[in-house]
């Protein structure tokens, strides 16, 4: 999960850290969870391209939603032309 310094000599010269290593799973911010109804999904990829968190993955027949970084904003459900995504309150 990226670079965590443990002593002074671990520090880079100036704050320069390897990118692409988010450590906090922002999924725990979520109140509503997007749930996909695969039967309704036409794989148009609009939810995929609009998702700010890049948590929707392309699939062969339908998209797949992952939850580690999903903040539950609901854009995917709002934009889905076939209403294939439902926002369900987290238990």
């Amino acid at each position: 999960m990226g670079f965590i310094p443990n002593k002074l000599s671990d520090l880079p010269a100036g704050a320069a850290f390897e990118g692409g290593h988010p450590t906090t799973h922002t999924g725990n911010w979520r109140i509503f969870k997007p749930v996909l109804n695969k039967d309704k999904c036409r794989n148009c990829l609009l939810c995929w391209i609009f998702c700010p968190e890049a948590v929707i993955k392309k699939g062969s027949d339908n998209v797949e939603i992952t939850y580690d970084f999903c903040k539950g904003c609901g854009i995917c459900a709002n934009e889905c032309p076939t209403k294939a995504i439902e926002m369900v309150k987290e238990g």
């Binding site: 520090l11 880079p12 010269a13 100036g14 704050a15 320069a16 850290f17 390897e18």
Partner: peptide, 24 residues
């Protein structure tokens, strides 16, 4: 050692919290 390199993507002038700023 630390420079712009697309094969080693660094965030340069990153932000830090109070737990690291002082060491820099």
């Amino acid at each position: 050692d630390y420079k712009v390199d697309v094969n080693r993507p660094l965030t340069i002038a990153a932000g830090t919290a109070p737990n690291l700023y002082m060491e820099f």
